[in-house]
Amino acid sequence: MFPLTLLKPGAASTVREVFDEHAGYVWRTFRHLGISEADVPDLCQEVFVVVHRKLGEFEGRSSLKTWLYGICLRVASDHRRRAHVRNERAHAEPGEHLAASGSFGPDARVEARAELQALLAELDDDKRTVLVLYELEGLTMKEVAEVVGCPLQTAYSRLHAARARMLEVLTAAREQGSER
């Protein structure tokens, strides 16, 4: 679970403290949002530059966690907006990975990451974002809606659609595997 920190107005905090507690999650979020591994460090830097600039203005109306995720989403969105990276996605066919996988192999972490990213690549950005924040980052749906900037009901709709798509892809992968 994401270590939740609530910064109150005027709380003494440095970018270092924010980095130490959250950098790993920022990094992981970019991975799950479909940013290529090569670009993740640069986007993480952009996030913490924004944190440096904005932390003094952070009023603690939301948790630091949701504030940070909001920055991540905007940085990722800007990154995707560029035409040549817009379609940057996971790198494998979900059917291939899922049909062949039974347990993690020697390079289990990398393999599992590729499988998961291939699955997530089946979603459009809106649904993917909601799914990642809820399923992988552990935000509540209220927090998800806040970060994404949509009504709670919309966030739920996107989550349900995303989950249904995941199950659909998985089912197709199973069928594909059974035919082999």
Binding site: F19, G24, Q45, F48, L116, L136
Partner: peptide, 22 residues
């Protein structure tokens, strides 16, 4: 897969390099 995804954090080396860049 999702359980693995929640544990898929960058390495200490990745974070050290990121810190050095900042």
């Amino acid at each position: 897969l999702f359980a693995a995804g929640t544990k898929d954090l960058p390495s200490d080396g990745d974070l050290r390099r990121l810190a050095a860049r900042l």
